[in-house]
Structure formats: structure tokens, C-alpha cells
Design a protein around this nucleic acid. Structure first.
Lengths: 222, 222, 222, 222
DNA sequence: CATGAATGAGTTTTCATTCAT
DNA sequence: CATGAATGAAAACTCATTCAT
């Protein structure tokens, strides 16, 4: 009886709505400039409810970081098939990475900019995810070195540095692709593959890395 | 250890002290979390004096960005000798870059993180500097391509993307080197040269780029 | 004697309490010397609540001016019966005016002094109200002139000047009556009627204007 | 020897320059909004000198009030010839008053608005001057009453009220004349004489007060 | 559950005022 | 005298956070 005004939604759903609103607000305004008022309003709920579910601004931000970090890693993982050769795996991972960051710019802003800029606690949160990716790339490089039978024992730290450089370049290109009119995720991935795999030296000598035949990023039903 | 309470300094000196304190505070706390109170105290002056000389928090931050951007570009420029071949120039520039960022971590935090995260006005300020560096690298790559006589007309956007990737990788490695125990500026530069010049493919094949004979970064009497 | 710390009042009520406190503080300290802290304390609420409801010091002041201007005009209107001859109407209006200003000295200070002294925006707010009264008086004078059949076409500007003088004299007398021990609203009104209607010349000649039979300013049940 | 930069001016002269600047600034910005910095700059001296000569902002403001009050009273006195009949004296006084306020709007703002709006101390200062004028007018009215042989003993308080009303009307008209395009001091004086001397009743009946033959306000040669 | 009412603690900013040279 | 250097104190305003209903 009486008009149903607020839909009673299950807690999990409400929480996701709040996180959606928070990611958007944090991504656009920045962590400190984002106000809990604005987030609550954008989520369509009252402020005390946000506190009831998410505890505090810090916790809310942490929750955002975790959700988006998990999503990004999942997207990259989903794009990679571990039975392929190393360069193919890298190519697939990069395509997935650029596609995801292009489709979720606010999330990317949260992970890449905001989380790194507002306290070690948050930075550590992203670092955890980033390390996962760096580790993946590190293994990829090490595997490739073994496959090549030529350079089986690159020093570990050297490999770590290379992975770091590669991931850093990818992150930077993601921002560049988002900001530059007409640069697609695929182009960004190609550029980076060329750069990373062939190196400037080979490029200068006219030996670019060439992308494989087109294959869809996400398969139907998959 | 705190600032010695020196009184009655000429304005120019006091301003530098304030900028020192501001860079440190902004770099560590972040732009928004840094309070003018803290900056003034660290500078060893009263808040009104900070306002008298630097006008506002925004202006103070802008002044920090400008000073540190100028210093960084100057450091890189000073490290490069334009009469060398492209890879040597790049190598020198990278060494200077990593050395400077390692010696001024707060300044690097201000330029790389804080300025990019708190408003387009500030971001534009760094972008101006970054563009200078990207342009420099772009010209370097184009020059190298011409020298190689093989790939004289890489598409312009492609070159821009490569430069972007290289600079992004460098920025990322700077943070990594700062954070990783025992990684020197020289090592970071070497890793990046390998990665960028030879590429992973060549590295795998046992064809790394090899740094030239040691030469001091800053020469005595220079 | 201080405000009873009543909690959880509906917004409309709290707003009136805040306006009460603000009028009193602005009236006594002046616009600039009045601090939001003091107003909030006098209202028995915290400062943030004042800002939540009234937005800013300027908006708060404007709200005060509007409320008190409306109240004053309403009081004067309520005292006038438009079916009486001009001098009777004027007499009634003056009595209502002096009665109201005597009962609300802080409000009168806000309207007469503070609002005129702190920016054109505020001044315009009072001017709107004052113009209403001046217009009313102007019409009264014009009507009286027509009734008298003798001076039907006093130049418009002349009439405006006369109305201005009359209103100015009234405003001035209000302050005088408030400040002078033992001067009632009725006496002030009588003095001004004598002055304005008969003029000094007639007064000197022993021809004062005589007030009508006593009639209550506000009728019981009204 | 050496360039003469600052003219050594006698203290009295410097003080007047400061007061000039202060009156202008206080008159235009208002007491609180006027900053000592601005006043010092407008006066062309350093701030400490202002403090050396005038002690504090309050003292400076008081000095302004005193100087301008004295000047206004002197101007009115200079315009009146005590050997004339009462209405002629009044007429002369009003003309002098309107002329002075029109020529010194900032001073008038200080006396009429600012001084009354920022604390009893300042208000008292103007009140002293105002009382002088009110007393003068009171005596004029009393004298006129005696001259008329008809109403020799108007009650003292009544006369005080009339004087108050007259002065209040004059003050109000001064502001009106300053603000209204094309209203001269002379017209303002005429309007007020009509209003005050003949009264609305007489005016309605076509019996205005008529100004005497033109006579210059300030005679050549002083 | 959901919310309107309420606040403690802090922020940037400004100003009158004073020394030391 | 004259001034550049310097500050204590307070102002307006904001925000994350919590009750009482």
C-alpha cells in the first residue's frame, strides 16, 4: 500500500551503482575534489547509505580501485591465449589493454592518475595490480628468451626493467590514444609492438614487427 | 634539522626557500592535501608572507611547476651533444633525465603526478615542457631514420607514437628506479636504451644495444 | 537568556531563527563587522548550517533586507486606509512607519544604514522598497493637489522632490525617535505632520496641522 | 647631491595628503573595505608613515570625519548672514549645504554613511557636528517664532523635532540631488524651502515660498 | 532501511600593524 | 625620516561524517 518510491534493491546492486558513480566522479573531478555529496546524488541514494555500505571516502576509493583493477586485469587476461608464441601473446594483451582503457576512461583515470597521486595506501593498491601485469610480461619475456635459445639467462633485474619499460610505455600510450583524435586501440597496440619488439634500430633499418592476421578480440559466445 | 629561523632575507632568496618548501610538500602530500600552513612552516616563514610573494595556492603551484620544468629541461639539454649520432644523443639525454629525476624526486612527483592530476591549467603547464622533450625525441628518431637511408619516410603519426612510447617508458622507469632499491640512473638508462633501440626481438636474439665507452655525465670544469 | 539549544527543527523555522540573529547582528555590528561565527552562535546553530541554508554572507544579508523591507512595507500598508483624505492617509502611514521602526530598531538599522553602505547590490534591494513608499507618497501629494483644486499641475519633478524630502525627514526622525529618550512614535508622527503639512511658516503663524481623533493603530480582531 | 626622490614636505602638508587619500578611499570603498595599503599608495607615501602620523585606522578615520565635519559646518556658516530674517538665513544655509555636499561627494559619503555605519565612536563624532547644525536650525526656528509674535512658546522638544526633520530632509535631498541627473544644488534648496517653510498644505493651496532675488553664493574677493 | 538535520575541524585568504635597516 | 620585510589574528567558507526519526 502507498506509493513505492524507492525500489528496494539488493545490497550488492546498490553497491555497484555507488561504485559506478564514484568511479565516474573520482575519475573526472579527482579524489579530493570529488565530494561525497556529489557521488551520493549521482548514485541516486542518500549520503548516509553510502557510509553504511562503503564506510568512508577512503574505503570507497579503495573499493573503486580494487574493482577497476580487477576488471582491467581480467580484460587483459581474457585477451591472451597462453598457447601462442610470446610476441602473439603480447600483441593480444596490448590490444585488450588499449581496448579496455579506451572504453573506460574514468576507470583508467582512477587507476593511472588518481590512485597514484593521493597517498601511498592507494598507490599500493594499484601497484599490486600493476605488479601482476608486470610479472606476466616478465614471464613472457623470459619465455621468449628461452624459446630463442640464444639468450637464456638475461639477468633477472634486467628483465624486470624491460617489463617495467614496456608497461610504462603502454600506460603512457593509453593516455595518448585517449587524448589524440583518431588514434584507435589497434593503432596504439601496433605502434607499441613495433617499438617494443623490433626496437628503433630495426625500425630504422626497415624491419618492423608485423601484426598477425586479423582475429576478433572477443569471440562470440566466449 | 628544521629550517634555521633566519630573518630579513631579500625577497628573491625567500621566494626560493618558499618554492623549495612547496615542491617538497606538494610532491609528498599532493596538491590538495598540502596545506599552505605546512608549506609556510617548512619554509620557516609566516603564511601571509607566502601570500604576499606568491599570491595564491594556485600561483604557488604554478611557480613550482615552472621552476622544476625549466630545471628538468635544462638538465636534459645540458647532457646532450647535438654533434653525436642519434643513439648517442638519446643515450646522453636519458642519462641526464634519470639522473635529474633521481636527485629531485619531489620535483618529479610534482611534474609527473601532481601537475597532471589537478586541473587542466596545471597539466597544460607540464604538457608544454613535455612537448618540448617529445619534439626533441621525435626529431631524433626522424634523423636516425634518414641516417639509416632505409626508412626515410616513416609516417609522421607513427613517429609521434614512437616518441610518445619512448618518453612514456622513460617516465615510468624514472619512478621505478626511484622506488627500486639499488637501481642507478645509469642502469635505468641502459635498460631503456636496450629496450628502445634494439627492441625485445633483437634482445632475444642476443643483439643488445651497447652503451659507448664511459664518459662522465658532467665534466670537470663544466 | 541565551538561545535555548533546541534541536532538530524543521528547516523553515531554523531559517527564521537565523534571519533573526542575522538582522540583530548586522543591525548592531554592521555588515562587515558582523561575523558569520557570531550570527551562527546567536542563532544557536553551527556555521555550516547557516551556509547550508543561506548560502553565503551576501545571500544572508540580502535575505535579511528582503524580509525586513517586506515587513516594513506591509506594516505601512496595513496602517493606511485609502478611502480617507490625503492628509489622513499620510498621518496613518507615518504612525505605522514610526511604530514599526521603533519596534524593530535593528531591522531599521539594516535597511536604513547597512544596506545603503555596503554595495550597490544591497542598496538596490532597499531602493526598490523605498521607491514603493516614495511612489505612494508622490501619489498622495498629487491627489491632494487635485483635491485642493488650486494647484493641479505641480511639475512632476517638483512633486518627486517633495516626496523625497518627506520620506527623508521621516527616515531621519525615526532614528531620532529611537535615540531620544521619551519620544513616542505618535509624537514623531505628529511633529512630522506639522512640519510637512503646515510648514514652518504656518507653524510660526500659529496654524498647526491638527491630528484627528485618536484611533487605534491596529484594531482588535484585525 | 644625488637625485632628490622624495620631496621633504612639512608634516602638516603630508597629513593633509593622507587625509585627502583617506577621505576618497573611505568614501568610495567604505570604512572596512578600504585598506591602509590602498590609502598609503593613493597618498603616495609608505604605510609606516601613515601610522607614524595618524596612529591607526580608527584614528585616521576619526581625523577624516573631524576634518570634513568642520569643513561642512564652516561652509554652511560662511553662507549665512545672521542679520537677515529667519527664512532668508535658512535659505542661505541650505544653498551652502547642498553646494558643499555636491562638490565633495566622498566627504559627504564619509559623514552621512560611513561614519554612521561603523561603530558608535564614529557616529558620535558626526553627531557632534550634526548637533551643531541642528542647534543652529533650532535657534532659527525659535527666533522665527518670536519674530512672528504669534507662537512664542512652541515646546522645546517640538522645536527640536522640527529641526531634526528639516535637517533629515536636507540630508536625504543631498543624496537625492547627487544621484539624480540634472538636479542642481539650487533646485534642491528651493524644493526644500518650499516644503519646509510653506508646507504641503500651503503648496496645495497655491502658496509656495518664493526664493529671494539671486545673490551669489560666494562673493568675489571672499 | 532511508533521510533530513546538524556539526567539528580544517581550508584558503586578508588585513592592520610593527620592526630593522 | 622612509621603507622593505614580516606577522598575529581572524574571516569566509567547505567537507567528511553522524544522529534522531
Amino acid at each position: 500500500m502507498g506509493a513505492v518510491k524507492t525500489k528496494r534493491m539488493p545490497r550488492a546492486v546498490r553497491e555497484q551503482q555507488m561504485l559506478d558513480a564514484a568511479v565516474r566522479t573520482f575519475g573526472q573531478r579527482g579524489y579530493m575534489a570529488a565530494s561525497m555529496d556529489e557521488i551520493a546524488e549521482l548514485a541516486g541514494v542518500s549520503k548516509p547509505l553510502v557510509y553504511l555500505y562503503l564506510n568512508s571516502k577512503e574505503d570507497l576509493f579503495t573499493a573503486c580501485i580494487r574493482r577497476e583493477a580487477t576488471a582491467l586485469v581480467a580484460a587483459v587476461r581474457a585477451g591472451v591465449r597462453t598457447d601462442l608464441p610470446a610476441d602473439r601473446q603480447l600483441w593480444a594483451g596490448l590490444r585488450a589493454f588499449f581496448a579496455h582503457t579506451a572504453q573506460h576512461p574514468d576507470a583508467w583515470s582512477v587507476l593511472h592518475l588518481q590512485a597514484r597521486t593521493h597517498g601511498e595506501v592507494f598507490a599500493a593498491e594499484v601497484t599490486a595490480m600493476r605488479d601482476e601485469i608486470v610479472t606476466f610480461v616478465t614471464q613472457l619475456i623470459a619465455a621468449a628468451a628461452r624459446e630463442a635459445h640464444r639468450n637464456p639467462d638475461l639477468p633477472e633485474r634486467e628483465v624486470a626493467g624491460l617489463a617495467e619499460a614496456l608497461v610504462g610505455a603502454a600506460e603512457s600510450l593509453a593516455a595518448w590514444a585517449n587524448a589524440t583524435e583518431g588514434v584507435t586501440a589497434r593503432q596504439a597496440a601496433t605502434t607499441l609492438m613495433n617499438f617494443a619488439w623490433s626496437g628503433l634500430g630495426d625500425l630504422m633499418a626497415g624491419r618492423p614487427w608485423s601484426p598477425p592476421e586479423e582475429e576478433p578480440l572477443t569471440r562470440p559466445g566466449g
